[in-house]
Every structure is written in C-alpha cells, then in structure tokens.
Design a protein around this nucleic acid. Structure first.
Lengths: 206, 206
DNA sequence: GCTTTCACCATATGAGCGTATAGTAAAATC
DNA sequence: GATTTTACTATACGCTCATATGGTGAAAGC
C-alpha cells in the first residue's frame, strides 16, 4: 500500500478548501472542480472521500458550525475575569457580526446555505438551523441571571428581549455583509440596545 | 403585421411568471425554461422581450420592489383615519414580515437575490439595496415626529432605534421564512419592542 | 395583391455541471 | 518477489443551462 492517509484529516482539508471558495464566491457558486483546484487534488479524489457533493456540503457545514462555536466560547473566555452574564451576551451577539474574514465567510456561507435549504428539499435536514434555538436558550439563561442580580428592570419580558436582540444582530450582520453598514456602526447600534436592556431603572418622569 | 402587442405588458407578464416560480423554488433555481413554461410561451420569446436573463432579472426585481412599495403605502392608508407616526412605523415594520404568499415570495426572492448579488459581480448594481436606506429615512422622520409629540422619551437616539428596529424586523422575517418562528410570534416580539420605544416614561424606581 | 413587418416557435450550439469508469504507481502483506 | 491493497488521476458521459439561428404565419401598408 502507499502512504496511509488519515481520512478524517483529508476530509477536513477538502472541507476547508470548499469553505475558502464559498467565502469569496458564495456557496451556490462553488463547483467540485473549484474545490479540487483549491485543495490541489483531482475531482474524483473528492468523490473518493465523499460519495456525493451533498455529503461534502453536509460535512463542511457541520465543520463550520463547530468552528464558530469554538469562536464564541473563545471570545467569552477572552474577557479574562470570570464572565458576567452581560459579557457573555455581548460576546455572543458580537460574534453574530461579520467582523473578520473567517466570520465573514461563516455568515456568507450560512446565508447562502439557508437560501438554498429554503427551497432545495435535499438540503432540508438543516444542521445549522438547530443552533439558533440553542443560542436563544443560552442567552435566556444569562439574561435571567442578570435580572436576578438586579442588572435589568424586574418586569422585562426575557424571551422577547432575547429573541429581539438575536434577530437584530442577525439583521445587522446581513446589512454589514451587503455593505450597507460598517461593522462599527452595526456594533454601535447593537450595544446601544444592549445598554437599554441592562439599564435597571429608566428615565423617570420630569 | 399580426396583432400588435404591448411590450411593457408582456414584460410584466413574463416577470410575474418568473416571480411565481422564484416564490416556490427560489430565485437561483429558476431557469429560462421554467419561466417560459410558467408564462405559457417559448424560451426564445423571452429573449425577444429581454436580451439576456440578467436583464429579465433586473426588470423583475424592480417590479417586485415597486409592488412591495405599493403594499406598504396601502397598509398605511388602510389604517383608516389620518395615520399617526406610530401606525406608519408599525405598518412598515409589519410589512417586513412574510405574512402572506405575496410577501413570502418577496422575502424569498429578495433573500436569494441578495445572496446572489453578494458574490456575482454581474448583479452588483443593486436595485433593491437602495430601498433600505429610504426606509430608514422615512422611519426616522416618523419617529422624530412622534418624539416631538411627546410619544417617546425625549432622550432616545432616533437613528439607533430606527436601525435597530429595521434590523430586528429583517431578522425576524428571516426566522419566519426558515420556519423557526410563526408570524404571530415574530410580530409579538416586534410589537413588544415598538411598545418600548413608544413608552414616554419608563418604569420609575420603586 | 405583393411586400414588409411583427410576434412567435423548433431546434441547434457550446459551455459547465456532477458523476462514473478505467487505470496507475507505490507500499504493505505473504 | 508476486500479490494485494490503497491513494490517486485522466478522461469520458449524460444532463441542463443560457443563448443563437433560421425559420413561419398573420396582418398592415402600398
């Protein structure tokens, strides 16, 4: 036999090649030939490790989601001292903006996948559409903790705030992606609304 | 000569056929053959009225944007009595949710076009990406009027509120589109945040 | 009433796609 | 050292796409 190869490692290499291409031209525009060129291998070798393009897509998407999860965790930890509910919430929402190349790739791929999956029945099994719900629950728990600690008004609707903030960050992320707004401008708006949630007592009557 | 035909009308018929298909299968999945079938004509006849597919796309997108603009205006007027700033804002934000078939088509087409335009240089001239800015200015004026009338806190950041609400409604619209949330749930969250903006004096200290 | 003009179609063309097939060089096994 | 197994490639296949070509029949103009 020739050099034995770690199949899992090769699959990751191929997936990374796909994501690199998808990050610049969009997921819909990536052909098998492109992935092969990007990875420096032949097209049938991709078939050797993934039977079909669809399987390659699934694998790459799962890998991307995993990498982004690690990014979020890293950002939370990067706040140094033991994270408060607010820093956790800020970290997650900030990660929803395309701040750098990897993040931009993630959002571009995620968006183009979502639009494909909306209509293509073959992609209906959505590996990426489960994550938003998990995010929602996580934020909900953090915000509940913050309310317990008296950092928010006592009468706020936790779920409405969380869902609203997540939707807002997603919407702002898209507007950054299409070039309508800068990352800084988007973050300015987002943090303004986070501030509002974390203002325990609001402007009293004159 | 045979029956003279109104070219503008034929173009609209073809564009409507395209939008009907795009509303179920997504813009990326619509081929010239599909449009021809849907319109009950031959493919070369489409070429007769539009030189290329790209021109057809541009026309159809402009038509769609125009129809949605009419929807918004109609919804504002439908509130009967002379519209207040708040009803105008509510109408616009509500229109950003895919509430019925036409609206769902609009959002699906808009989303799939946006992802295509993100990467395809040929579509870079964005006829739909000008509208969000116009919406922002319109909402801004309405909210300023509301503040003048004492319906909001005096110290709110108008632009941040408007941009935030628009982003939120866009994000909620997407979540409805992918089936993560119902229209009612999305509207519940959105109106909750509208309420918050339109609460002149907020929970005083105990 | 011949000619021109217009709306429209059947069919061809060439490019690009995902996938299938056949084969090759190298190393481990016996 | 012959054989088997493994990683890998060149090339071919069948399909669908947007677009190009060469018409045809009907009505208006003269």
């Amino acid at each position: 036999m020739p050099k034995r190869v770690d199949h899992e490692e090769r699959r990751h290499q191929i997936a990374e090649a796909l994501l690199r291409r998808a990050g610049t031209r969009g997921l819909h525009a990536v052909a098998m030939r492109d992935v092969a060129d990007e990875a420096g291998i032949s097209v049938p070798l991709i078939q050797y490790y993934f039977k079909t393009k669809e399987q390659l897509l699934h694998f790459a998407l799962g890998y991307l989601a995993q990498r982004m999860g690690e990014r979020v965790r890293k950002r939370v930890r990067a706040d140094g001292t033991s994270p408060t509910p607010r820093t956790v919430i800020e970290a997650i929402l900030a990660e929803a903006l395309p701040t750098d190349d990897e993040s931009r790739t993630f959002h571009l791929v995620y968006t183009s996948y979502a639009t494909l999956a909306l209509t293509d029945p073959a992609l209906a099994t959505q590996p990426l559409l489960r994550d938003p719900d998990a995010m929602e629950d996580l934020l909900l728990a953090q915000l509940a903790a913050a309310r317990e600690a008296g950092q928010t008004p006592r009468d706020i609707d936790l779920r409405a705030e969380v869902v609203g903030l997540l939707a807002m960050s997603a919407g702002l992320g898209t507007s950054v992606l299409v070039g309508q707004r800068s990352v800084d401008a988007a973050w300015g708006v987002l943090s303004h609304h986070i501030d509002r949630v974390f203002t325990p007592e609001l402007t009293p009557a004159p």
